[in-house]
Design a protein around this nucleic acid. Structure first.
Lengths: 337, 337
DNA sequence: TATAATATTGTAAACGATTACACAAAATCT
DNA sequence: AGATTTTGTGTAATCGTTTACAATATTATA
């Protein structure tokens, strides 16, 4: 592979001069610059970034840790991060952790290993303690899912409020027997939404036994299954009249299974999702869901990251952006009221 | 930041010894190893990979170029690549090109800059010439979308055959007036499928005027729009009885728009997609689609990449894996036959 | 006990860039 | 013309590792 020395030899100058030309140092004579440029072209030279990074200790790359690539919710966020990073001359490297702590640890070590300048975590599968240890001192922002008591900037929505609002909405429609399908083990957001949900339930003096909290993975299949199992468990007792799901995929699975049994969605059973992903519009019936400002979340994450990168000692801002409930046909008044 | 010298000082040994311990060199006395291990722990030392990479000229990282993260089709492929790479101790770095040639170029330069050892391209937005120049001499495999006449290994399906088979299937149902919604400018696969499609049409002696080829982006919205525009253009003339779409998203958009107009899918209009993505199962009606062996595609891509990595001069294998048509309710016999 | 073989460890040269510093040549000023 | 500044270029140190090779300590052998 051709390196800076080869170019120097070819151009008949020193490596320092070649380096200056490459980096557009103004104080190099036009004639010299030309000689070097020609040599670069002749040899088809590309600077070795490893060498450069070692010296400059700066890579212009941001690591983005993603739990899964199949989760539609993240794609818009990534796009907006990409654009915001681009403006500052930074590139994004996405790494998929698949909820595998060992893998996540390995990728996070890229920070310590100086392979990237900074990182964004969209969701961690590590323990808060491990995560804190691994990232301590490095520019990192937590985005969407986060550990609250770790000293990093955070961008997300107010999940507790979103849970509260969702319950309020269903209650306002007349529902008094409601299910909550979440995933509290893996996602803090789910736990927070449940907290808010419970607050609204309590506020409206609905008995706790009227709330059915169940666990579900984020997939159509798991949504179907969770609904099916709930039916089994109830064993003839009346189903809830509304089901709130912490992701659109779960909600769609629920609708699928219910419809397969001839249950009418939006009347006999109201179903509500979360994230306002593309499918929520095109499924049947269109899904009522909670929308997060994904573009804003992405650009804000990058903004906070650069702030941290510039001034290491800066305050760890926490931004909670506004959510909205998008009402569609999958929810309505309960029929048997 | 603590480096190998600090550890050496702390442990009272030379940097060479520290390096040996880190890399599990067997010929280091147990007592020394212990001293070093302790120093490493005490100082919380992590080797700087930039330094290491510079020396070893090897990163154990594979670059994966992705046109977009929102495309569901790719996620399973990535997962299987990830697993196959992991087995060999390699990590994947995903880079999103967004169909932006400048961005793609920048990411490909990571190869030349030795920031990664190898790369996989899932779809390029560069010209074949630029792509060839940029990647010449580097271990790279093209996966799914590819330039046929560039010297790299290739993994994909036989798109022409898939197009042929799809047309055959629709014709066998009785359709004689058919639309093809593709994206021939951006995707070679679309062009190939169209070629196969045309062959089948010709083979069955169906007049060319009975085939309606239209361009569409890969999104629900664009599918809707393309269908709507086709209707406009036909201006009262009978619609095709079947529409083949090169992606599930287009197909679902088409169904949406048609259903909004009261057209019955599967009877009055047959719609067929491609890729067998998760939505194709859960949309209404479930979509007939062409399934690609995504897990196989991913692992094969990695397999060929490692072969290339090991023996630079190896033959550029081309593997075309088998596709299958998954028939569901969105297609049926035309009603007015 | 002297010597050879082996096991450990250290020294120093890479890897490929950047950059402080030194220095020579050219330009500017008395 | 001589002194001073400016301009352009080169020398060599440096970033953090790995790894030939040299050097030393240990053990085995005669």
């Amino acid at each position: 592979m051709v390196n800076i020395k080869d170019v120097a030899r070819e151009a008949g100058v020193s490596v320092a001069t070649v380096s200056r030309v490459i980096n557009n140092d103004p104080k190099v004579a036009p004639a010299t610059k030309e000689k070097v440029d020609e040599a670069v072209k002749r040899l088809n030279y590309q600077p070795n970034l490893i060498g450069r990074n070692l010296r400059t200790a700066c890579t212009n790359k941001i690591l983005v840790l993603l739990p899964a690539i199949s989760n539609q919710f993240y794609s818009r966020i990534i796009v907006s991060m990409e654009a915001a990073a681009e403006e500052q001359g930074y590139d994004l490297l996405l790494c998929i952790t698949n909820g595998n702590p060992a893998k996540e640890r390995k990728y996070l070590e890229m920070l310590q290993a100086h392979l990237v300048d900074a990182a964004i975590s969209l969701s961690s599968s590590l323990s808060p303690k491990d995560f804190a240890e691994l990232t301590d001192g490095y520019p990192l922002v937590q985005c969407c899912e986060f550990f609250a008591d770790i000293k990093t900037p955070i961008v997300s929505i107010d999940n507790e409020q979103a849970g509260f609002d969702s319950a309020e909405y269903l209650i306002s429609l007349g529902h008094r027997r409601i299910a909550f399908f979440g995933n509290n083990d893996k996602y803090v957001s789910s736990q927070l939404r449940l907290n808010g949900f419970r607050k609204a339930i309590a506020y409206h003096k609905i008995a706790e036994e009227q709330l059915f909290v169940r666990n579900s993975e984020f997939s159509f299949a798991s949504g179907r299954e969770t609904f099916f199992k709930l039916q089994k468990e109830l064993d003839g007792a009346p189903l809830p009249t509304a089901i709130f799901c912490v992701s659109d995929s779960i909600a769609i699975g629920v609708m699928q299974e219910a419809q397969a049994q001839g249950i009418k969605i939006g009347t006999e059973l109201s179903v509500m999702g979360f994230d306002n992903t593309a499918v929520s519009e095109i499924c049947f019936p269109p899904l009522t869901t909670v929308s997060q400002p994904r573009a804003d979340i992405g650009s804000t994450a990058i903004k906070l990251l650069f702030k941290k990168l510039k001034e290491k000692r800066s305050r760890n801002t926490k931004e909670f952006l506004p959510h909205t409930i998008v009402t569609r046909e999958s929810t309505g008044k309960p029929v048997n009221l």
